[in-house]
Design a protein around this nucleic acid. Structure first.
Lengths: 158, 158
DNA sequence: ACACCTTCGTTCGAATTTGAACAACAGGAG
DNA sequence: CTCCTGTTGTTCAAATTCGAACGAAGGTGT
């Protein structure tokens, strides 16, 4: 319980950090969305699904694991996996150790798609974020946001 | 034009920064969305509209200016302002100097809403982001993301 | 005054996202 | 084994988002 009625507002630096985060996040997403759609016909979310699958052993992951990595809702993932399935980029199969489980796995076509889409995406991430910052800034960013993410993750799992 | 076929992939630090950014952004949005909805019945976007209006002279802004500040599409803003209008938090009036123009302005009820919603929101932003980081980290974050945002903004306006 | 290009906000349809509700199953305590 | 609680993925309705197209008006150059 706080000892003051008046909340601690954000000072100038804190506000700058927070606004910067929100604005940069929105602007970046907007740009990446456009680039991926124009270049490969994928949404950012769909691209990330393919990336996480291709990074996983066997190019496959359980739905729940995938949803956690993507930081999205289960229902949202169900929808997007269905879309990717229709595009022939991802397949579903049932989990051997758990009858309820569903495993999403990359198809050959999905592997080809990510191979084709990744370079343009990475190049833009570089141009808009990575190459704009110094090595030190990147290091601080990585550590800061890593900490923030870790805290948020463990908060969600009580 | 690049001189190599193989793109420059992200190294470990760069990847950590980028993933940290994406994950933190998603997790933060998720939490703030929930908090605002539960606490005040507002979406994050709606909250931000109220904030930007209350920060503007006369508690009012033109639609286009507001859309720029929010980093959203014009149609998206039209929709949300209509919602806020139905809730009685925002009003529309026409612009004196431009017949096409529409000015969104905070109502008394809107001012009351933001006064009621802000403390809880700010407290959570503190708890999840600001107070987790050191002063130096915040400074670097602010400058880094400020630069990134500025570059993105001017890229959009050719 | 005229044609021309841009800007403003809205409307429209399509795509996406979310949380709640659900049925089926897993895992343990008793 | 049996009950009980938690998990898993899907379905559903509702809310939101976006881009393209639009009508209306501003602003400019001739």
């Amino acid at each position: 319980m706080s000892s003051l009625n008046e909340p601690r507002w954000l000072d100038q630096d804190e506000m700058a950090a927070w606004r910067g985060f929100v604005v940069a996040s929105n602007l970046l997403n907007r740009r990446l969305e456009r680039q991926l759609k124009d270049d490969s016909g994928l949404s950012h979310q769909q691209y990330e699904i393919l990336v996480h699958l291709s990074a996983a052993p066997g190019d496959s992951l359980r739905m729940t694991e995938l949803a956690d990595k993507l930081v999205t809702s289960k229902s949202g993932l169900t929808y997007q996996v269905t879309q990717l399935e229709r595009m022939g980029l991802v397949g579903r199969r049932s989990c051997p150790s758990d009858v309820r489980g569903v495993i999403a796995e990359l198809t050959d076509q999905g592997r080809e798609m990510i191979r084709q889409a990744a370079p343009g995406h990475v190049a833009l991430v570089r141009e808009l974020l990575i190459d704009v910052l110094t090595r030190e800034q990147l290091a601080v960013l990585a550590e800061s946001l890593g900490t923030v993410s870790a805290r948020l993750r463990q908060d969600e799992t009580p």
